[in-house]
């Protein structure tokens, strides 16, 4: 479904990705793991169109994404939940979700998707009319994921949902991602929380210094000595 071939990308004079190869198949739950500065976020940003690759190719369902603007990426069915969430702080939860559904013309479809989001995150329903800027950290993540789901994407990119969250909201977020996956959503997740992530994903890539150094199923990587030493502290 999604395929990155030898992607190189970066910011101005600083190149971050030095040839990233990865692929995500329909219905898969895939994670990108790695230390700070390895290029995990940049990988997602280059798929979402915010950091256009310098070299290499990103294809989605066989279509080349290089040169595609962020809003066009969203329109072809890739939802992106960024690290900083990029919510609209002076809009209510409801309005944030409505803006998320900007590209959906059919009102009943919007209402139906919103119901699924509220069912997935009942907290958001309780806070429906509250301004996004006044939500707690966990609620903001829920809202960002909810907004990402509103255009009914076929692939969801999620950047560090556990960042800055206490253990309980983190688990709730992972649970929600698991539920989504069970319903057939394809998810590409970036995480630092290696242990939990490897237990819920199908496959994962380990990114170090802008390159993929390891890949395998969750269990394979949990048993890998490099992963155990560098990330799990065993």
């Amino acid at each position: 479904m999604l395929k990155l071939t030898a992607v190189e990308a970066g910011y101005d004079l600083l190149q971050v990705l030095w040839g990233v190869d990865l692929h995500v198949e329909e219905g898969e739950f895939v994670a990108i793991l790695g230390p700070n500065g390895a290029g995990k976020t940049t990988t997602l940003r280059s798929i979402a169109g915010f950091v256009p690759p310098i070299h290499g190719s990103v294809t989605f369902r066989g279509k080349e994404l290089r040169g595609t603007l962020p809003h066009q990426v969203s329109r072809i069915g890739i939802g992106y939940v960024s690290e900083s969430l990029n919510l609209f702080p002076s809009m209510s939860v409801y309005e944030n979700l409505l803006v998320g559904a900007y590209t959906v013309k059919d009102k009943s479809a919007v209402a139906a998707t919103m119901d699924t989001v509220f069912e997935l995150f009942p907290r958001l329903l309780e806070r429906k009319d509250q301004l996004a800027g006044t939500l707690s950290g966990g609620e903001r993540k829920m809202l960002a994921i909810g907004r990402g789901l509103m255009p009914r994407p076929s692939l969801l990119l999620v950047d560090e949902p556990s960042l800055g969250l206490a253990p309980i909201p983190t688990l709730a977020t992972f649970e929600a991602l698991k539920t989504l996956r069970e319903r057939g959503m394809t998810i590409l997740l970036v995480e630092q929380n290696v242990n939990t992530t490897l237990r819920i994903v199908d496959r994962a890539y380990v990114l170090e210094q802008g390159r993929v150094v390891l890949e395998g199923t969750g269990d394979e990587l949990l048993g890998n000595t490099h992963v155990q030493e560098a990330y799990l502290g065993i």
């Binding site: 809003h71 609209f88 998320g100 559904a101 900007y102 907004r147 990402g148």
Partner: peptide
């Protein structure tokens, strides 16, 4: 309120 967020929602700046 947030240009990047608007783009993620498919809004053409």
């Amino acid at each position: 309120q947030d240009e990047a967020g608007a783009q993620m929602a498919g809004i053409s700046l």
